[in-house]
Simulated assay, not measured.
Amino acid sequence: MNRAERWLPDLLAGAAALAVGLAELRRSGEWGSAAPLLVVAGVAAAVGLARRLPALALASAWLTGIIQVLLGVDPMLTETLLAVVAFGCARWGRLPTVWLSGLSLPLSAGIAVLLLSPYAFYEALQVLGIDRIAADTYRDGGYDWRLAAGLVGFVLLATPWLLGLALRFADRSRASRRSQVAAEAERDQAAEIARLRDGQAQLARDVHDVVGHSLAVILAQAESAQYLEDVDTQALKKTMANIAGSARSSLDDVRRVLATTTDAPGSAARAPQTDLDSLVAGVRASGHEVVAAEVGTPQPMPPELAVVAFRVLQEMLTNAIRHGRRDQPVHVERHWQGDLRIEVRNAVPADEPAGSGGQGLEGMRRRLEAVGGRLDVRRRTDPPTFTATAWVPVRAR
């Protein structure tokens, strides 16, 4: 829609007001008088500007009134169309325009009463069809007509002004509701994005733990097979069987992890692996010596906490296999005293660089912090050892 099309309704409203004013001038016989024509033109201009430029419409209405007073033009019935200006100022005007238009209501009604003659008021009421009020207030030029005239003028202007104000507040209320709905939708979207990102990060940690541990075990078993005698086929077969078993277990574990990320029919997640002893047994099967100890009475743990304990021990053992010395045992201790404390200690080569631990340690920290646990990692130089200690709650917090 171009500018001319946007202004078309306002131009038609101004033209209609001008036609009404000219008809009134023709009826009253003042068609050829310039001063009444100027007042009619001012009213028409104010009506045409009421929607697009309410402040300018209010200024035009007051300018028309001043010209009318200066030129001595009697009040006209056409001026009741200034109610459109009152409506426009309250409906579309800025806050100063709303206040000024509201203050203009009693002021303009009072000025009109001062300029109005009893007969003109009586005639206007008759034109409006309010004969009873005309009869009660005129009373052959009685004194009470001015109060009635002021009230009628004020009502004619105040009613559309209040209507415009009500519509203005209704628009603001609808806009506020739309804004609130949009804000809630944005919050929901942000929460959903955060949930998806958390899910992706969790999936990445799970796959890292599963695949990293399995590859470390398989690598250790494959390396140990290099030192078997060529004639020892039984030992070689056993090693290959262990490698196949580790790979099969890893594949099954990956399937468990991926099953939790899909809603496809038939892909219900199977119970995740939480047997800590199976992790120790798997490392032993790879050829590493593991010294395991358990202190205290094992306690049942909620599934989510049992999974955390399993993944944390899995990553600890993976690091021990990858970075530890093969000729030294891996010490695994579990202490059931309040929280479950898991400690894995292994010897490391003296020239092993001390790093930050990479994604594995960071993943363990995130898992533990998410359930109220914590991780402590220490490296000692005499003798060169690496110790990882995790505290896992046995009850949900």
Rank of each mutant, 00 (worst) to 15 (best):
R3Y: 10
P9E: 10
P9D: 10
A16C: 04
A17M: 03
A17D: 04
E24Q: 14
E30P: 00
L37M: 09
A41K: 00
A44M: 02
A46C: 03
V47M: 04
R51P: 05
L53Y: 14
E79F: 07
A83R: 08
F87V: 11
P96N: 11
T97Q: 02
T97G: 05
L103C: 11
L105M: 12
G110L: 14
I111D: 11
I111C: 01
Y119N: 12
E123M: 05
E123I: 06
E123Q: 06
D131V: 01
D140P: 02
G141D: 10
V152D: 02
A158N: 03
P160W: 01
G164D: 03
L165V: 04
L167Y: 05
S179E: 09
S179R: 06
V181N: 12
A190Q: 10
G199K: 00
A201M: 11
A201F: 13
A204S: 15
V207A: 11
V210L: 07
S214M: 08
L215T: 13
L215V: 14
V217H: 03
L219T: 15
Q221E: 14
S224D: 15
Q234L: 15
K237S: 15
D263A: 09
R270W: 08
A285L: 15
S286Y: 05
E289H: 07
V290R: 06
A292G: 01
P298Y: 05
E304W: 05
V308R: 00
V312A: 02
V312T: 04
Q314E: 14
L317K: 01
I321D: 00
G324I: 02
P329A: 10
V330W: 00
L340I: 01
E343Y: 01
A347R: 02
V348T: 12
D351S: 09
G357K: 02
R365K: 14
L368D: 04
G372Q: 07
P384V: 04
W391L: 15
W391K: 01
V392K: 02
R397E: 15
